[in-house]
Design a protein around this nucleic acid. Structure first.
Length: 622
DNA sequence: GTTCTAGAAC
DNA sequence: GTTCTAGAAC
């Protein structure tokens, strides 16, 4: 615990952060600082110490944060919003009461106290929640190992921040340094204050850039990496730390984007969802940026040519912030985390291991409920949150417009099926009229090729039972039928595997099918088809929208109905490889990637027979 | 489900 | 300029 004698006097313009490990430390720290002068209570449980002569004030900010393994953050993810770090929050949230707390003690010159107060107020008054503030954390480029002059660098940082800060709307930039005594941080702080840069949109932060959320409670969607030209891990400093923290998938994802980087340039890399930086810290993108090098012992040294150096450093920050703006734009277009959250089951929400991801998604959901103005609402997302099996029975435009065909209103779900959506229904009701299309006709099911296959092998096992339009209509009494459909699908998959043992199959249902009449998809996992043309096609087979037959059967056995999380946004969410989970910007790029990706399938798919493989196929080879 | 196409993104 | 997406119509 800090003793009074250990509290060095703060110089004007400097900040001090003290981490306390429990409530007693917090109280004792406040007491110790109180001894230096009277403390004023600020809003939101913060305290400020006024010293009018020195124009120094201290703000002690409590932020409620569990000091446990980072993976457990999710259990009080909402409470992290209560952080006095400049994240907006729900002031009423009390979920972490009684848990171990840390406190952040911040001393600052008068200008900065204004900033602290703003931060504290922001955590109470802001009408958007923390996860909605898109944040870029960036280290100072080139001032460490590349030995760029701090004075010059700080001028450029402030100049570029000033240029971009007005384009940020609901987003912010944070300059991060590990060291409390960081010269570049104090220079930038002073210069930013002088230029009256909005402290809600730009501030400095002392902490480990790879642990901003788990250690500092600061959620950042994107972090910048002071990279090397090879875009390789290693070296030292920030680059090594970020690659180490992100795990090997960052290197893979980076390689897909660029092989090397020129000084002054940046490359935006979406973080694969298995990266610890993504799961633990909530970072969705790493932006590698290469600055000018003044260190003669590193490649491409500029030999102290600061004319060139400054120009390149400006370019580097421009590239970095432009890259961040592009991430912001894509976020505005589609709040992707919403769909990711809805992909997870309700029980996942209670799973502490989800940490910042839930923190984000909860807040994204909140904003969709409370504030239409912040995000452009996707028409598709309206009114579809957490709908239950019963909810999806309501007529929906998803199913095409009412055509006057009386059959469209038949069946227990009473939803409107467009005329084009009736084809399978007609086949099931009158298989004898469609013999040429059928691969197999059995008592309860018929088998046919999908008219627009999305993979080399893609067929449908179609139930003949009238009144079973989709998964939502399936109940306990249909268990035997589901098992038959699965067995028939499996038999066909095995037949194909016999012909080509390298194939892999998946059997499952679309949560909300486009075509009427319950049908099981049997689809090979190559997804090599000209008919696979858009996001909806991909995501309907590669998100939670696709319900594995084995899981559906289990749910019917155990609960008498299938869990259906209806969320149209699932179908427009980001495109990720079904094997390595890497993200891709569009369908053509995704398709060229999946044509070569040899990564093993995710464990979740390899479990419980969700994937059907040739018996002797050795996945350790791939 | 597909096709068509305007306009956004590159 | 081309590529790509996403909404409307069917």
């Amino acid at each position: 615990m800090l003793q009074k004698k250990e509290l060095p006097k703060l110089n004007e313009g400097f900040a001090r952060i003290v981490f306390c490990h429990n409530e007693n430390d917090v109280e004792a720290t406040i007491k110790a600082y109180s001894a230096l002068g009277p403390l004023d209570t600020l809003s939101n449980g913060c305290f400020g110490q006024k010293n009018p002569d020195a124009k120094i004030q201290l703000g002690i900010m409590k932020f409620l944060k569990k000091v446990e393994a980072p993976s457990s953050l999710g259990s009080c993810s909402d409470s992290v919003q209560d952080s006095a770090c400049p994240q907006a929050s729900n002031a009423n949230n009390t979920c972490c009461k009684g848990t171990t707390k840390q406190s952040l003690l911040l001393g600052a010159a008068s200008k900065e106290v204004k900033e602290s107060e703003d931060m504290a107020k922001g955590s109470v008054d802001a009408d958007v929640s923390a996860g909605d503030i898109t944040t870029l954390a960036f280290p100072s480029i080139s001032t460490a190992d590349f030995q760029f002059n701090n004075e010059k660098a700080s001028d450029i940082i402030v100049e570029k921040v000033e240029e971009f800060v007005n384009k940020l709307e609901n987003a912010r930039l944070v300059l991060v340094d590990l060291s409390h005594g960081s010269k570049i941080l104090s220079l930038v702080r002073a210069k930013a204050a002088k230029r009256n840069i909005d402290s809600k949109k730009f501030f400095t932060f002392v902490g480990d850039i790879t642990r901003l959320y788990s250690q500092g409670g600061l959620h950042c969607n994107a972090i910048a990496n002071a990279s090397n030209w090879r875009l390789k891990p290693g070296g030292g400093g920030v680059n090594a730390a970020i690659f180490a923290a992100a795990g090997p998938s960052l290197e893979t994802a980076t390689k897909e984007r660029a092989k090397s980087l020129l000084p002054g340039h940046a490359v935006v890399v979406p973080l694969p969802s298995d990266s610890p930086l993504y799961t633990r810290e909530g970072v969705s993108h790493v932006i590698h940026v290469l600055g000018p090098n003044m260190n003669p012992q590193r490649p491409n040294s500029l030999n102290n040519d600061y004319t060139k150096g400054c120009s390149i450093l400006r370019e580097a920050y421009t590239s970095l912030f432009t890259g961040f703006l592009s991430i912001m734009r894509s976020r505005l277009k589609l709040p992707r985390r919403i769909s990711e959250k809805l992909e997870s089951s309700p029980s996942d929400l209670k799973d502490p291991s989800h940490g910042p991801r839930n923190h984000l998604t909860n807040s994204d959901q909140k904003i969709k409920r409370d504030d239409d103005s912040v995000y452009e609402r996707s028409k598709k997302c309206k009114g579809t949150h957490n709908e239950t099996v019963a909810d999806i029975s309501a007529p929906s435009s998803t199913y095409g417009k009412v055509t006057g065909d009386k059959s469209k209103l038949e069946g227990p779900t009473s939803k409107s099926w467009g005329s084009w959506a009736q084809a399978l229904y007609h086949i099931a009701m009158h298989p004898e009229k469609h013999k040429e299309k059928l691969l197999e006709v059995l008592d309860a099911v018929v088998v046919l090729n999908d008219l627009y296959p999305k993979a080399c092998k893609h067929l449908l096992v179609l139930a003949q039972h009238e009144g079973l339009d989709c998964l939502a209509d399936v109940h306990q009494e249909h268990l035997q039928l589901l098992m038959t459909m699965h067995a028939v699908g499996l038999k066909w998959a095995e037949k194909f595997l016999h012909e080509d043992s390298s194939m892999v199959f998946r059997l499952g249902y679309h949560s909300v099918p486009s075509m009427r009449q319950l049908h099981l998809h049997v689809i090979s996992q190559d997804f090599n088809s000209n008919h696979l043309k858009n996001k909806k096609h991909w995501n309907s087979f590669n998100t939670a929208f696709f319900r594995d037959s084995v899981d559906v059967i289990e749910e019917i056995k155990n609960h008498g109905k299938a869990t259906i999380k209806v969320e149209d946004c699932q179908l427009s969410m980001e495109l990720r490889c079904h094997r390595c989970r890497s993200a891709h910007p569009n369908i053509p790029r995704l398709k060229s990637h999946i044509s070569i990706c040899q990564a093993p399938f995710p464990h979740a798919l390899l479990e419980n027979g969700r994937l059907v493989l040739a018996p002797k196929h050795n996945w350790s080879d791939t």
